[in-house]
Amino acid sequence: MKECNDYDLVNEPGHMERHYWEDLWRFRELFFVLALRDIAVRYKQTIIGVLWAVIRPFLTMVVFTVIFGRLAKLPSDGGTPYALLVFAALLPWTLFSNALSESSNSLIINSNLIGKVYFPRMIIPAASVVTAFIDFFISFIILIGMMIYYQFVPTWHILLLPCFIILALTASLGPGLWITALNVKYRDFRYIIPFVVQFGLYISPVGFSSQIVPDKWRLLYSLNPMVGVIDGFRWCILGGESLIYVPGFILSLAIITCFLWLGVYRFRKMEKTFADLI
């Protein structure tokens, strides 16, 4: 073992590299280049291009406002317009679901790279999340437009929004890493993700306020980590009327952290075999 120290790189079975995180930093340019590639390619050869990032969440918002706000007459948080309530939740949800689907398919899509070059594999799912982030920024413009339309002035809470953006990304990256690694071995997960995303839209408080959930169930409801993230977004954007349910939020945080750790751990475990299995 002592001999290994004389060498820069060692490749042997079950050998977790000591310099993994350092390596990840060394390859940061690859991260940017891959992210740039995904962004550059995303809306190539489409007619309305980047408008797709605006249209989809906007139409979803309209439909949810009509169904949950007008037809089902669910209450909003205080005097907040229902459309704003929906859109403030739709933003993190779209970010989360896009990031999750992009990252969980990322290894399969980039299989040609994995078989032919070495780099810390975590760069691929991490870079794929960036496109979701860009889409998020573009649809953020709609939110600003809506705020002007409703003449809604945000409070200082909005300054904390970046923290919750990071939280939403973290929430997707944890499961995303795990699933993309599993996807290499078992392609079943490719079919699971669209289902999970569709399902999650209804069990997360996107079309309605989480305050309508009875108090005794709220902690249980917060087992869905997106509940904490969405509540946080509403708290930032809509101000004082949308309250964060603190025990639930802490639970969501714990679950997100737990998933992130699990994702990274499982990913690292399987990483070395990707080239053989993909």
């Binding site: 060498y7 042997e12 050998h15």
Partner: peptide, 15 residues
């Protein structure tokens, strides 16, 4: 040798 995959036995060291 280029660390794309891991060997089942033995090891390779590179400087």
């Amino acid at each position: 040798l280029s660390r794309i995959t891991e060997p089942a036995t033995g090891r390779v060291m590179i400087r």
